[in-house]
Design a protein around this nucleic acid. Structure first.
Length: 938
RNA sequence: GGUUGGGUAGCUUAACUGGUAGAGCAGCGGGUUUAUAACCCGUAACGACAGAUAAUCGGCUGAUGCGAGUUCGAGUCUCGCCCCAACUACCA
C-alpha cells in the first residue's frame, strides 16, 4: 500500500471542486440570488437584442392561493421553451402575468370585510380586493421564481393594473365598433333573498320537496295531430299533450313544449281524451293517472309534431311544439314544459326557435304587476295557486310531491330560481364571429393536433358569450344606455376613450364614481351608466391587446400560447374570440397544451384523496432541478403522473447526469482550452469519434427542443451519459487520463474531447436543469460569459473524414460486449476480479481481424484487459467460445499469469524490467521517468 | 349523457404507411476501490405450466387495460366493454 502511494502521486487522478452532492435545496436559492443581483433577465434581453423574436405569451394564472403542481408544470414547460429558443438564437422575452379580478377574490375579501354595499362601501371593498390580489401575486411570484423560471418578474402584467384595465375597456369598444356586442337576457341562478344573481360557485345542491305535476296542453288543430299519428278516430275527445314539471310556478312563463325529435310518441285513447305521450313512458304515465282502459291509436316521431300549436293551460296563448335533444325518457312524459326565462336548457332551445324570453318574476321573487292570476305572489307560494288554477281549468292530470336535489343559495340556504335578467353578450353570429373564429382556428397550429377538433367543436356549438356580471371587483362595462330605449349612446366610441383615460389614471373606480354629466353634459339625464362588470375571461382573453400589442418587445400575433388542456374552453377560446372580433385573426400562431398532473394510478389529485404533491415540498427536499427534470421526462401532452417513486427515479437520473459531468470536469483538471486543446486531426480516433457522436446527438437534441419534445431530450442526454460515456468512453479513457504524462497528446486528446462535450452538454441541459447547468458553467475551463444562458448551442470544431467512423466503433463495441460476457464467466468463478486481471485472445475471420488490427495495442485498452491478441479464426483452439452476437469471432479469456503493475494495474510481461522500478510495467516506466508512451495510433 | 384524448415491463419512454414489442432506469447477481453519497460487468419482460437438462439448451403457452373481428400477420385498423382525465350538459 505504501509503495503504491509513491506511484499514486505520479498518476493524473481526477480532481475538481464541483461537488458530487448536489444539495439543490440549499444551493439553488443562492444561485437565484446571484441571478437576481446581477439582473440576468435584463442582461439577457440586451444580449439578445436584434435577434429574431420568439414570443411565448404567458397565460395569467388566477391570483389566488399557493401554486400547485399544475402551475409548476405549466411555468416550467414555458421556461424550458423560452430558454431553448434563446440558446437556439432567438430573442425570447417572457412577460409573466396574473388574472386579478373576479369572484374568488371577492369571496375571500368578503370574509374579512363583509359584503360590498352592505357592510362596507364598494370602493373600500374594491381596494381590499386590489390589496388582496397584490399579496397573492407576490406569493405566487416568489414560488415561480424559485422554480428557476427566468422572466421579467419586475414588470409582469396584472389585469388590475390601471393601464390594463383601461385597455380592456378600449378593447370592448373595438368589439362594439365591429358590431359583435349584443344585449339580451339570460336565465341566471337567482336568490330571491339576496335579490341578486349567484355565481355557479355560490350554488349548493340540497334536497327539496316540490310538487310534481302532469299538465294537459290541448292541441289547437286536433285533426292535424290525428293525421300525423295516422289515427282515425270518430269520437270528438280532445287531444292533449302532457308535460311533467316540478316547478309549476314557471308555467306562466311557458312558451313551448319540447319533444325529442327521434323518440317515438304514441296517441293514447282513454275514457275522456287522447293523450300524446312518449311511447317508452306511456305505461308508467297512465298508471300514475289511474287510467285502466286505454288503446294506442297511432304513433309518430317527435320530429313530425314540430310546430304544432298547443293551448296554454290557463293563459290565452298558443305555444308551439319544439324539438330538443335534452328531452329524456328517464321520467315524466317525454314532453317538456319550456320556459326560456326560467331554465338554462329552455333558454338555449328557445333561442333556436326564437321564443320570447319571458320573465314575469321580479328580483324579490314575486310575480310582477300585470301578471294575470298571480300578480304579487312569491313564486314558491304561488305553486299551490297554480295547481288550483290548473285544477279549475281541467288541465291538471296528476299531482304528487317529489323529493329531489335542488339548487340552494349558499348563504341563505334557501331554494333559488332561474330568472332571466338583462345581460351583455358577444354575439357569435350577428356579425359572423363564429365562422371567423373557426377559420382562424384552422389557420392555427394545434399541438397535439386533436386540439383543433376540440376547439372547433366548441366553437360550433357554443352559445353567445355572456360577458356581463353583476359583481363589484371587475372591469366595468363602461357604457351609457338610453333610459327609455336602452340604446347605446351615439358617441359611445368617444365616451369609451374618455373613460379609458380616466381609468388609466385612477383605475376602475373612476367609472364607478363617474358622474354621467361630466362626460354627457345635459344629455346625462337621458342616459344611465351600465353598472355590470365584465366576465374575467374577458380580462384575460384580451391580453393580446393589453399586453402583446402594448409592449415594444413583443410582437402580435404571438408565436405560442401554452396552457393546460382545460384552456381550450377557457383562455384559448376567449383569446381567440376577442382577437378575431377586433383583429380578424387569432392572437397566436401555435397553441400547445399539456395535460393535468395525476397520481401514480392516474387519478386526479385532491385533498380528499390525499394524493396531492406540493411543488413547494419537492423544491424544499429534492430541489427545483429535480422537479424540472421530472417535467422534462414526461410526455406532457397526456396526463402526467407523479409519485414518490417517479420522483426518486428522476433524482437517480439526475445523479447520473451530474456525476457524468463532474467526472468530465475532474478529468479536465489542468486543462486550458486555449493552450492545451488539440486540433481535430491531431486527436486520437476514439476521442474524435465521441465528439462526433456528441455533435450528432446535439442535432437530435436541438430537433427535440424545437418540437417541444423534452422527454426526448431527457432520454437522449441520460442515455448518452449512461451508455456512450459512462459504460464505454469514460471508462476506457481512465487509463489514458491517469497513467500517461500530463501534457502528452494521449491525455490532451481526451481532455479536448471532454472539453467539447462538457461545453455542449451544459447547454443541452441548461433549459431543463438550469441551476445545475449554471453551476457547471462556472467549472468548465476556459473564458466564458457570466451565464450559460447568454450563449448559443455549442459550435463543435469542424468534423474530418474519419476512417474509424461510428460504424467502425459500433463493431468494436460489439466485440467488447462479447469479451465482457466471457470475462464475466471467470469473474463468477472468482478466477479474476477486475477485467485487467484477464488476457483475451480473439480468433477472428479476416474481415474482423483487419478491422481490429487498426487499433494495434489500443485494443487492450478499449477492452480494458491486460492483453488482447488477434489470431486467425482457423487457429482457434477447441475451448475458445463463439461470440453470440459477432460473426466470425471466437474468444478465449484467461487470467493473466504476469505480474500486475502497481501503477496502471495491467498485468504485463515487462513488469520489473527496470530494477529501479521493480513493480512497474515498461509503459509506466516510460511515463514516470522517460519520454512517455506514445498512444497515437492509425 | 355528450365532446376530445389516454391506458406498452416496477418507473420513464420507443416502435415509419399493419411486419421479430426496442431502450434507459430500478430490481437481482457479481466486481472494483485509480469517479467511492461514485463507477463497471452480467442478468432480466404479468402470472403460470409441463418436459428435457443441470456447463451449454430446446419447446409449449401467455404477453401492449379486457374481449372479439378483419388480415398470412394487429400495440398499430374495426367493433364492444372496463378504467382514467379535461371540457360540457342535465336532473323538467
Amino acid at each position: 500500500m505504501s509503495k503504491q502511494n509513491i506511484y499514486k502521486d505520479t498518476l493524473n487522478l481526477p480532481k475538481t471542486k464541483f461537488p458530487m452532492k448536489a444539495n439543490l435545496a440549499q444551493r439553488e436559492p443562492n444561485m437565484l440570488k446571484q441571478w437576481e443581483d446581477s439582473g440576468i433577465y435584463r442582461k439577457l434581453r440586451d444580449q439578445a437584442a436584434g435577434r429574431p423574436k420568439f414570443i411565448l405569451h404567458d397565460g395569467p394564472p388566477y391570483a389566488n392561493g399557493d401554486i400547485h403542481i399544475g402551475h409548476a408544470v405549466n411555468k416550467i414547460l414555458k421556461d424550458i421553451i423560452i430558454k431553448s429558443q434563446t440558446l437556439g438564437g432567438y430573442d425570447a422575452p417572457y412577460i409573466p402575468g396574473w388574472d386579478c379580478h373576479g369572484l374568488p377574490i371577492e369571496l375571500n375579501v368578503e370574509k374579512k370585510l363583509g359584503k360590498a354595499g352592505v357592510k362596507v362601501d364598494e370602493k373600500t371593498f374594491r381596494n381590499g380586493c386590489r390589496e388582496y390580489a397584490a399579496r397573492q401575486v407576490a406569493g405566487q411570484k416568489a414560488d415561480f421564481k424559485r422554480l428557476g423560471v427566468m422572466a421579467d418578474w419586475d414588470n409582469p402584467y396584472l389585469t388590475m393594473n390601471y393601464d390594463f384595465e383601461a385597455n380592456i375597456i378600449r378593447t370592448l369598444g373595438q368589439i362594439i365598433d365591429k358590431g359583435h356586442l349584443h344585449k339580451g337576457s339570460k336565465p341566471v341562478h337567482w336568490c330571491t333573498d339576496c335579490g341578486s344573481a349567484l355565481a355557479e360557485a355560490e350554488v349548493e345542491y340540497e334536497d327539496k320537496t316540490s310538487p310534481a305535476v302532469d299538465v294537459r296542453f290541448k292541441a289547437v288543430d286536433r285533426q292535424a295531430i290525428l293525421d300525423i299519428f295516422s289515427a282515425a278516430n270518430g269520437s270528438d275527445k280532445p287531444v292533449n299533450a302532457v308535460i311533467w314539471t316540478t316547478t309549476p310556478w314557471t308555467l306562466p312563463a311557458n312558451q313551448a313544449v319540447a319533444l325529442h325529435p327521434d323518440f317515438d310518441y304514441v296517441l293514447v285513447e282513454t275514457d275522456q281524451e287522447l293523450l300524446i305521450l312518449a311511447e317508452e313512458l306511456y305505461p308508467s304515465a297512465l298508471q300514475r293517472y289511474g287510467v285502466e282502459q286505454s288503446q294506442i291509436l297511432g304513433r309518430c316521431k317527435g320530429s313530425q309534431l314540430e310546430n304544432q300549436l298547443l293551448q296554454h293551460p290557463f293563459y290565452n296563448r298558443q305555444v308551439p311544439v319544439i324539438l330538443g335533444d335534452h328531452v329524456t325518457v328517464d321520467s315524466g312524459t317525454g314532453a317538456v314544459h319550456t320556459a326560456p326565462g326560467h331554465g338554462q336548457e329552455d333558454y338555449v332551445v328557445g333561442m333556436k326557435y326564437d321564443l320570447e324570453v319571458d320573465n314575469p318574476v321580479a328580483a324579490n321573487g314575486c310575480f310582477v304587476t300585470g301578471t294575470p292570476l298571480f300578480e304579487g305572489q312569491h313564486v314558491f307560494k304561488a305553486n299551490p295557486l297554480v295547481l288550483e288554477v290548473l285544477q279549475q281549468k281541467g288541465a291538471l292530470l296528476h299531482h304528487q310531491d317529489l323529493l329531489h336535489s335542488y339548487p340552494h343559495c349558499w348563504r341563505h340556504k334557501t331554494p333559488i330560481i332561474f330568472r332571466a335578467t338583462p345581460q351583455w353578450f358577444i354575439s357569435m353570429d350577428q356579425n359572423g364571429l363564429r365562422q371567423l373564429a373557426i377559420d382562424a382556428a384552422e389557420h392555427t397550429t394545434w399541438l397535439p393536433d386533436w386540439g383543433q377538433a376540440r376547439i372547433e367543436g366548441m366553437l360550433e356549438n357554443r352559445p353567445d358569450w355572456c360577458i356581463s356580471r353583476q359583481r363589484t371587483w371587475g372591469v366595468p362595462i363602461a357604457l351609457f344606455v338610453h333610459n327609455e330605449t336602452q340604446a347605446l349612446h351615439p358617441d359611445t366610441q368617444d365616451l369609451i376613450e374618455k373613460v379609458a383615460q380616466k381609468v388609466e389614471q385612477a383605475g376602475i373606480d373612476a367609472w364607478f364614481e363617474l358622474q354621467p354629466a361630466e362626460l354627457l353634459g345635459d344629455d346625462a339625464q337621458n342616459y344611465s351608466k351600465v353598472t355590470d362588470t365584465l366576465d374575467v375571461w374577458f380580462d384575460s382573453g384580451v391580453t393580446h391587446a393589453c399586453v402583446i400589442k402594448q409592449r415594444d418587445e413583443l410582437q402580435f400575433p404571438a408565436d405560442l400560447y401554452l396552457e393546460g388542456s382545460d384552456q381550450h374552453r377557457g383562455w384559448f377560446q376567449s383569446s381567440l374570440l376577442s382577437s378575431v372580433a377586433v383583429n380578424d385573426m387569432a392572437p397566436y400562431k401555435e397553441v400547445l397544451t399539456h395535460g393535468f398532473v395525476v397520481d401514480a394510478q392516474g387519478k386526479k389529485m385532491s385533498k380528499s384523496r390525499g394524493n396531492v404533491v406540493a411543488p413547494q415540498k419537492i423544491m424544499k427536499t429534492l430541489g427545483a432541478d429535480i422537479l424540472r427534470l421530472w417535467v422534462s421526462s414526461t410526455d406532457y401532452t397526456g396526463e402526467v403522473s407523479v409519485s414518490d417513486e417517479i420522483l426518486k427515479r428522476t433524482a437517480d437520473a439526475y445523479r447520473r447526469i451530474r456525476n457524468t459531468a463532474r467526472f468530465m470536469l475532474a478529468n479536465m483538471d489542468g486543462f486550458e482550452p486555449q493552450q492545451n486543446s488539440l486540433e481535430v486531426a491531431d486527436m486520437l480516433p476514439l476521442d474524435r469519434w465521441i465528439v462526433v457522436k456528441a455533435e450528432f446527438l446535439q442535432q437530435e437534441i436541438i430537433g427535440a427542443y424545437e418540437q417541444y419534445d423534452f422527454h426526448q431530450v431527457y432520454q437522449k442526454v441520460h442515455n448518452f451519459c449512461a451508455m456512450d460515456l459512462g459504460a464505454f468512453y469514460l471508462d476506457v479513457i481512465k487509463d489514458r487520463q491517469y497513467t500517461t504524462q500530463v501534457d502528452s497528446i494521449a491525455r490532451r486528446s481526451a481532455q479536448t474531447a471532454l472539453y467539447h462535450i462538457a461545453e455542449a452538454m451544459t447547454r443541452w441541459i441548461a433549459p431543463i436543469l438550469s441551476f445545475t447547468a449554471e453551476e457547471l458553467w462556472g467549472f468548465i475551463p476556459g473564458k466564458r460569459d457570466e451565464s450559460v444562458f447568454f450563449d448559443s448551442w455549442y459550435a463543435f470544431p469542424p468534423e474530418i473524414q474519419d476512417e474509424m467512423d461510428d460504424a467502425y466503433w459500433q463493431k468494436v463495441l460489439a466485440v467488447r460486449v462479447a469479451c465482457s460476457k466471457e470475462m464475466e464467466k471467470l469473474r463468477v468463478d472468482k478466477t479474476i476480479g477486475s477485467s485487467l486481471d484477464a488476457e483475451v485472445d480473439l480468433y477472428c475471420d479476416d474481415e474482423l481481424r483487419a478491422l481490429l488490427e487498426k487499433l494495434q495495442d489500443e485494443l487492450r485498452f478499449v477492452l480494458i484487459t491486460s492483453y488482447a491478441r488477434l489470431h486467425k479464426l482457423s487457429d482457434r483452439p477447441a475451448d475458445a467460445v463463439d461470440a453470440d452476437d459477432v460473426n466470425g469471432l471466437a474468444i478465449q479469456v484467461k487470467a493473466s499469469e504476469h505480474n500486475k503493475c502497481v501503477r496502471c494495474w495491467h498485468h504485463r510481461e515487462d513488469v520489473g524490467s527496470d530494477s529501479e522500478h521493480p513493480e512497474l510495467c515498461g509503459r509506466c516506466i516510460a511515463n514516470v521517468s522517460g519520454q512517455g508512451e506514445v498512444r497515437h495510433y492509425v
